[in-house]
Design a protein around this nucleic acid. Structure first.
Lengths: 156, 156
DNA sequence: TTACATGCAAACCCTTTGCAATCGT
DNA sequence: ACGATTGCAAAGGGTTTGCATGTAA
């Protein structure tokens, strides 16, 4: 999602409330991970965050990153995705409205879209199969049809 | 998918043709894995197949299972899913029409559904984002609303 | 002060890989 | 017979865990 800059203080408030409520400690590491996730546009994996923070000479361990990402997911500030990769990708979700992903077969870039018709499908399925649907994951995989796409074939 | 019994000879024909075309060898292990996948209703992981076959005293290695599942996926006889699990789940796809999955938050059981409106969404996204969509993955995660659901809370 | 969180490294789990033995063609 | 395929075990890569140290409350 774009345009999330300047919203991290709202995220911080929500995170603090969450930590308070659950009697979790407000450690600097946890806020640092949150900040880094919110500073990053798009999707990133745990190790990506780890490397970025280390490169900034912020001392942190992978274990703490994983732990914090779980907390962020738990309080709805992060969404965890399992695309075809073997590792999980995260994205901040403060202004997350359920959106979906199109993964490009050519360059692996991820585009986002949303479509109201998905809600209709959800409602039908809820009734038919007897489930209160809490979340969904819709991913399309496709070949690029954009002529001279700037992203095309730039994987190494 | 249900009702796939008795279709494995068709699968076998398709697999043989595929192996011939690609100059891959028709080993008994490959057909054994295919048979086992087609004998299994629903989703199963590589290790699940491995254990089933070992329990039948069929001597096979994990490496061969993984290799064969790749081949089956390549020729369209198997579909590989990445749900929230860390391991991949496979299902036979001889009579696979694109269908989608509802994963139960209570018991982890997987139900299937399909909805024609998804095709409409696909068409819109194809045009909007410039992509020829080859495949998709739609998964709903929901809480069971079925009273006295037989599957409810039987995880250990 | 005291229990919870961190950091590190080892353990874990699923999957892939290397190589000698086997077997399809 | 030749070379692809198998089986095994070891390596790999992402994630989790155990434990001593550090630190928020």
């Amino acid at each position: 999602m774009k345009g999330t800059k300047g919203f991290s203080h709202i995220a911080k408030k929500r995170f603090e409330l969450f930590l308070d409520t659950h009697d979790y400690r407000k450690t600097p590491e946890r806020f640092a991970v949150m900040d880094e996730l919110f500073a990053h546009e798009g999707h990133i994996d745990a190790d990506g965050l780890f490397l970025i923070m280390r490169n900034k000479n912020y001392s942190i361990s992978r274990a703490t990153i994983y732990n914090t990402l779980d907390l962020l997911e738990e309080c709805g500030l992060a969404v965890k995705h399992h695309f075809k990769n073997k590792n999980a990708l995260y994205e901040q979700s403060l202004i997350y409205q359920q959106h979906n992903h199109l993964v490009c077969n050519d360059c692996n870039k991820i585009k986002e879209f949303s479509d109201p018709r998905l809600e209709n499908i959800k409602e039908s399925v809820s009734k038919e199969l007897g489930s209160k649907i809490i979340l969904h994951s819709l991913v399309f995989y496709g070949d690029c049809t954009i002529v001279d796409c700037e992203n095309k074939r730039n994987e190494n």
